[in-house]
C-alpha cells in the first residue's frame, strides 16, 4: 500500500471534570482552600495508537460516550492530547459540525470567505471557487441574505459546500452524511464518493454498522476510551456484532 498519512501514537486525553465547573473567583478560592481541585479525573481516551495509509477509510465504532468524537477532535487539532503525539501529512477537512465558523449576522456570501479562512484556505483560492460553492449549495439568491434567516438545512448545505471544495488528504466525517433534503443528500454522497475515488484518507464515525461496512475498509472499536480492536472491516465488524449482542 501507499505511504503513511496519519499516525496516532499513544494518545491519551484527560478531562478534569471538577475544574470545568469552576468559573468564578470565589468558587476557585473556596475549592482551592478545601483542596477540591484536580479531583474527578476522566480519561476520555487511553493509549490509542494506530496509523493509516493513503486511501484507507477507517470506520470508528463504539457506543455513546466511548470517545469517538473526542478522538476525531484530537486528530483535527481542536483538542491537544494530554499525552502522545499525532502526525498528519497533508490537509485535513474536518466535517465535524458544519458551519462551526459561521457568523449569523453575516450574509451567505460573506460567510463563504469567513468560513473558508477559518478552514485555512487562501483568499484567491476561495475567490476562484466561489461560484462553484454557491452552485453546489443550491442557495441561489439567498446567498446575499444574512445567515440568521436561513433554515438549518440551508446552513448545513452551505457548510458542506465550503468544507468539501478543497481537496483534502484527510477527511473527517462525523455523521454528516445526513445533510439536507433527499436531493442534496444524493449530491453530497456523490461528492464524498468522488473524494473516495481520489484516494483520500477517511475517518468516519457512525452508529450504523451497515454504513460503515459499505464505506470503509478498516475499522476500530472504542470502548470507554480504550481501543478494543483495530483491523480489517470484516474482522472488526464481527467482534462488534458480538459485543453488542453480549450487552
Amino acid at each position: 500500500m501507499g505511504k503513511e498519512v496519519l499516525k496516532v501514537d499513544n494518545v491519551s486525553m484527560k478531562f478534569n471534570l471538577s475544574s470545568e465547573k469552576v468559573d468564578s473567583v470565589k468558587e476557585y478560592f473556596i475549592k482551592l482552600l478545601k483542596r477540591e481541585m484536580e479531583y474527578d479525573e476522566f480519561w476520555a481516551l487511553q493509549n490509542i495508537s494506530f496509523s493509516l495509509e493513503k486511501g484507507d477509510r477507517l470506520g470508528i465504532l463504539g457506543l455513546n460516550g466511548a470517545g469517538k468524537s473526542t478522538l476525531l477532535k484530537v486528530i483535527a487539532g481542536v483538542f491537544k492530547p494530554t499525552t502522545g503525539t499525532i502526525t498528519r501529512k497533508g490537509k485535513i477537512a474536518p466535517l465535524l459540525e458544519l458551519g462551526a465558523g459561521f457568523d449569523m449576522q453575516y450574509t451567505g456570501a460573506e460567510n463563504i470567505y469567513l468560513y473558508g479562512a477559518v478552514l485555512g484556505y487562501r483568499k484567491d483560492f476561495i475567490r476562484s471557487k466561489y461560484d462553484e460553492i454557491v452552485a453546489f449549495s443550491d442557495l441561489g439568491k439567498f446567498i446575499n441574505v444574512p445567515l440568521k434567516n436561513y433554515s438549518s438545512g440551508m446552513r448545513s448545505r452551505l457548510g458542506f459546500a465550503i468544507a468539501t471544495i478543497m481537496e483534502p488528504e484527510i477527511l473527517i466525517l462525523d455523521e454528516v452524511l445526513s445533510v439536507g433534503d433527499a436531493k442534496f443528500r444524493k449530491k453530497s454522497e456523490k461528492k464524498i464518493k468522488d473524494m473516495f475515488d481520489k484516494e483520500v484518507t477517511v475517518l468516519f464515525v457512525s452508529h450504523s454498522l451497515e454504513q460503515v461496512k459499505r464505506l470503509c475498509n478498516k475499522a476500530m472499536i472504542l470502548d470507554h476510551g480504550q481501543m478494543k480492536a483495530f483491523g480489517d472491516i470484516d474482522e472488526v465488524a464481527e467482534i462488534y456484532q458480538k459485543m453488542i449482542e453480549e450487552q
Binding site: D103, Q105, L114, A117, V118, G120, Y121
Partner: peptide, 20 residues
C-alpha cells in the same frame, strides 16, 4: 502567514458588525 487571511477577515468582521 497561513492564517493572515483569517486575521484580516476577523478584523473586517469586527468593523462591519460593529456598525451594521
Amino acid at each position: 502567514m497561513r492564517y493572515q487571511f483569517l486575521l484580516g477577515e476577523l478584523v473586517k468582521k469586527g468593523i462591519k458588525l460593529k456598525y451594521r
